[in-house]
Each structure stands twice: as structure tokens, then as C-alpha cells.
Design a binder for these strands. Structure first.
Lengths: 333, 333
DNA sequence: CTGAAAGCGCTTACAG
DNA sequence: CTGAAAGCGCTTACAG
């Protein structure tokens, strides 16, 4: 136990603990010479402050909680990286709370309790109809949602509809008119991500004078395996699509595999676009709608830092752009 | 501010704060009826404890710090998931500290300071010669290293040498005698991971009466792109290898790409084994030495929980097994 | 610009 | 089994 406290410094420096406290935090109200002296003594004694004591006095934990459904999902970590980068050096810790799928029966830490351990939350991909969102809105600390739209608290979003529209329009531009869709879990629920992307898909089709067709819309469950099965189902249609838009790159990876299994070449035999900008998409030659994941993370962190700074800030809505990256899977070779 | 404290509960329940404190933590020394009463009152008042105050009193932060070099690396998050699962429900928070490559000039949070915010550390892939390791060993809280061997503190390891030996032996078993190696950054430094795997490679070769050859050993920098270039270099040799062992799956992915670019089929034209058990390896038909990543995480968490429980525990060394998963890349089709 | 003192909300010997 | 009181190590009005 390093039992050097400000009292020890105060004693050694011949000042009060109040002055030590002020000097340590660089308050301008401390005589510069005195401050330097105090800092020197602290340094010499190898002083390390007690965050717990500071937290108890100030009510600030100097930590922000990250609430995320799928810890190991690639995109999650990319965003966390962005957050970490922005917070780095601020002395604010990142506390990870895995909490996602309300179907997951694992005991969910009550947000009210988490609240006492952090000063703010960044919550990723919380479904708009989830009880967690309600709890987050009820909590009295700054919250920034990522990927969930809200008027009540700040959020950072990408334009999912626009991204999906761009993806679909890209396929239309290549001359395709029969365009399959691999979505996640549900598509009719107005409160979920997929709905937003679905609207973009529909809009693009509509813009080209085409109509959607239920048989061309299959679920891929947001997994590689699900994407593979979904593509199989599309290929098994009496009249298969000539192009497919998958709502995530991972599902598109599965779709690529299905194509491979059927001896079809992506690009020439069937066009395919994913969504995310996954690292491996480049490697696999998969065209995709890239999200600026790290930027999303840093944007969320900035929002939080600002509201921590000034707590009466009105909620902000940050919308970041996506980018179509065309690769082999949408090029005839 | 939820200003309900144990004093409010004490008042409402007609007992002392000491009793409330004990009841809340379920001490057996509290009369069961009284305890239930106190709990009921706490519940009714919607009491949420103050971790900061508890931490200040007890000196326990109820958090463990995760020190990791590459936040977004796939394997990192898999292990973090394992740790999270083990800690779930224990009330212990996970605090993420990104700190890796000593070459990375970003300001590294001093471990002495982090120490005051957590009760223990799990440190991943800290190089044995890194200053961070030294700092970790000097710190007076439980530490569990992952992937770094140590006699001073507990560690969780896989048998890298054995894994590499198995991979190489697998290739030898297929009849190959000219086996290339794609390593990470350096191979001669006895203090790094690669050295350990290199020994396995050498051992397998030696066991088959073969000798290593410098021209067959190329660096892939642990990245996809590096792996691709490394494989290109191998293919450009006057006498290229007929099989290759890559020290990571990601480098192997790059190698696969190089093969593809050269019109070579993995498995029939050249055999390839990776190392990690990456999710995508399955998808790409890459043979690999799979590490039990989540298990590594839970094992580390268990070690930490135990040392938190009883702080004079001697350091333990946990070695988990790897598993060869043979796929298309080592099968002639 | 500096200090004495109260207070943050718990836990824990100590006494009963 | 329960309570009064000190203490954990800071911060912050308040007074000077």
C-alpha cells in the first residue's frame, strides 16, 4: 500500500492539504513558486492520488461506461478503439459493460447501479424498443447512443438509409434489375436498424421504377453462416437474383462462400455488395458500404466529453457519411 | 443525484448505519428478520450504493484493469469476452487500458496510476523485455499475464512450441520436406513469442531429419498484407517451398491471397497452416492451430479472482492446449 | 493567495 | 447481534 497522501505532502512541504490539493490540480490561484515546490515534494514522495477519495468528494468517477451488445464483434472494437483514442490522456477510464440482446438471459447489470461507477455512458446498437434504452434515458448522466436515433439524448449515427440506397443503386447502375436482399433478423419492425437500411433498398428500387419482391428478401441473422444459407435460398429460387445486397459484410462473406460452393464467380456471375467496411472485405474483394467506425467512436467520445464539461448541453445528433467501396464482387472480370 | 444513502435507510429502518451496511452485504451476523427489514427499506427507497465511498473505506476498487496492446485485434476481444463472462455478476468492473507496442509513441498511462483505479491486472501479450512488464511486476496488486511467461506473477499460456511443432509435423506428415515459415517481426530474440513458435518449427523439422534454411524463413509482420508479401517472396525463390507454416492466421490470409494471385490452389499446389483459430479461417478453408481464446480469458479471470480472494497465493502457471484443425489448405483436392 | 474544518458515503474495530 | 464513532483521502465553501 502506497500510503503517501496529500497530508504527507502538506507536512513535508509546510503547507495545508488544501493548498496541496489545489497545486496538484494546477489551480491558477496557487502561487506559482509554492505550486512548483508542492509538485516537487509530491514527486519526491512518489505521490499517487486516490481516485476513490477524489470521486467521493467530487461525485465524479472519471470513467465512462461502454455498453455494448457484442463485445467481440469486429465493428464494436473498432468503435471502442476510436473512443479510447479520444479519451486517451484525459484521465478518464473506459469501463466495459457487455449487455446486449434482451433475449440473452444472462443477468444484466442494472444501469442504475452502473451509473454509480461512471460519469456517462456510450451505448452501442441498443435497439430502439429495448428496455435498456428506456433505462438509459431515465439515467441522470450524459448518454451518447451509437447507431440508435433519439431525440432525448445525443446520438452518433450513420445514414443507414442512404448507405443502403447507394449500395442498391450501385447494383442498379450495373444493369441489374433483379436484386436480392439479405437482411438481419427482422425487417418489418420500424424500430430496428434493418428497417432503416431496408428503406434505402426500397427507395433505390423505386427510383428505378422497380418493385420489391418478398421472395428476394431473405434473413441472414447477421452471421456468416446465416448469410451463406440466405444466399443458397436465393440461388435456389426459380428465378434467382442477378445481384444481392447484404446488410452486413459478415453475411456477405457467407454469401461469397455460397457462391463458391455453387461454382459461381462473384462479380461476373452474380454481383454482391455488403455493408460495414470490414477489414476482410478488402481481402475478399467484396464491395461494401464502409462505415467510419473509428470516427464514430471518437465522435461519441467528443460528445460525452463536452457534456461532461457542461452538463446542460442539449442533445446533439451527429450523422457521419458512409462510402461505397467497389471491388471485385461488383465487377465483371 | 440519487442522494439516498445508508443513513437514510438507517433512519427509516430504525437501526444504525453499521447494521445497514452489514445487512446490505448479507453478513451472517445480522439477525435475519432485521436484515430482511433493512433490505426491504433499501429496496423501497431505491437505494443504490456508492462504490466510491465503499472503495475509499475498504481500499478495494472492485475493478480489474485489462492491459492490451491491440484493442481491435480479433484475438484480444475473444479473450476479453472470456474474462467478461467469468467476471459477470461478480460486481467487478472491467477497465480497458490500451497499451502496447513500446514503439507506439502515444503517452502510456503509468501503471502506478492505473493501479489506484483497479484491484488487479490482466495483461495481454506484454513482451517479456518490455518496460511495461517490469512495471507490472513492481506493482503491488495481483497480476495475471496472458501469453507471457513469468515466474514472478501468474500467467496463462498456450504451448506455442508444441502448437508450432504440431503444425509443422502436420505438413511433414503430408510428405512435404521443403517447408517455408512466415514469422512475425523477429525470430532470433529469445524473449518474444515468435521465438517460442520458431523452436517448435525447428523441432519438427529436426525430428524429421531436416534442417531449417534461412531463405525459407520470411517475416510477415503479423498483418494480412505482410503475410501476402511474405508468401510472394517464398514463391519467388528459385526453389519455392511446397508447404508453409504461418505464425498467425492473419498472415496466412495474406498468404492465401498471394496464392490466389499466382493462380495456385492452397492444398493441392501448396499446403498452408496458420495459427490462432481465427473465425475466418474456417470460412477460408485455412488449416490452423486453434487457441482456446475464451478459455484463456476465463482462466486468467479465475486466477485473478482467486488472488483477490486470498492475496498470498503463489503465482500459478496455466498452460492450455492448442488444437490442429485441418481444412482445405492442407488437403489435396 | 492560503488554511482550518466540514463533508463526501461508506466500513470496521471496539464496546456492549 | 447491534450501535457509536473514527476513519478512508480527498475537495471545497468559508474566512482571512
Amino acid at each position: 500500500m502506497n500510503s503517501i497522501g496529500i497530508r504527507d505532502i502538506a507536512r513535508a512541504a509546510g503547507v495545508s492539504t488544501a493548498t496541496v490539493s489545489r497545486a496538484l490540480r494546477g489551480f491558477a490561484t496557487v502561487d506559482p513558486e509554492l505550486r512548483d515546490h508542492v509538485l516537487a515534494v509530491a514527486e519526491r514522495l512518489n505521490y499517487v492520488g486516490s481516485p476513490a477519495a477524489a470521486a467521493l468528494s467530487t461525485g465524479k468517477m472519471n470513467a465512462i461506461g461502454i455498453i455494448t451488445p457484442h463485445l467481440s464483434r469486429w465493428s464494436t472494437m473498432r468503435m471502442v478503439e476510436g473512443i479510447e483514442r479520444e479519451l486517451r490522456g484525459s484521465g478518464i477510464d473506459l469501463v466495459l459493460y457487455s449487455m446486449g440482446d434482451p433475449n440473452d438471459p444472462h443477468p444484466r447489470p442494472p444501469i442504475q447501479r452502473l451509473r454509480t461507477r461512471v460519469d456517462a455512458f456510450v451505448a452501442m446498437s441498443v435497439a430502439a424498443n429495448s428496455p435498456d434504452l428506456e433505462a438509459l434515458l431515465a439515467v441522470d448522466v450524459p448518454v451518447c447512443l451509437i447507431g440508435t436515433e433519439s431525440e432525448m439524448v445525443s446520438c452518433v449515427l450513420i445514414d443507414d438509409t442512404e448507405g443502403a440506397r447507394t449500395a442498391t443503386a450501385h447494383l442498379l447502375g450495373l444493369g441489374h434489375t433483379r436484386i436480392g436482399l439479405i437482411y438481419g433478423r427482422q425487417i418489418r419492425d420500424p424500430l430496428v436498424l434493418e428497417q432503416t437500411r431496408y428503406l434505402g433498398y426500397l427507395a433505390a428500387l423505386g427510383g428505378a421504377g422497380l418493385e420489391s419482391s418478398a421472395e428476394l428478401e431473405v434473413s441472414g441473422g447477421f452471421t456468416i453462416a446465416g448469410g451463406e444459407q440466405a444466399m443458397m435460398r436465393l440461388l435456389d429460387l426459380p428465378e434467382p437474383p442477378t445481384a444481392v445486397f447484404a446488410m452486413s459484410d459478415e453475411m456477405a462473406f457467407g454469401a461469397l462462400r455460397a457462391l463458391d460452393a455453387r461454382g459461381l464467380t462473384p462479380g461476373s456471375d452474380i454481383a454482391l455488395v455488403g455493408f460495414d467496411g470490414h477489414d476482410m472485405a478488402d481481402y475478399l474483394g467484396l464491395s461494401t458500404i464502409a462505415q467510419p467506425l473509428e470516427q464514430i467512436g471518437t465522435a461519441a467520445a467528443k460528445v460525452i466529453l463536452q457534456s461532461l464539461d457542461q452538463d446542460d448541453r442539449p442533445p446533439t445528433k451527429t450523422i457521419l457519411g458512409t462510402q461505397l467501396i467497389a471491388r471485385r464482387s461488383t465487377q465483371a472480370r
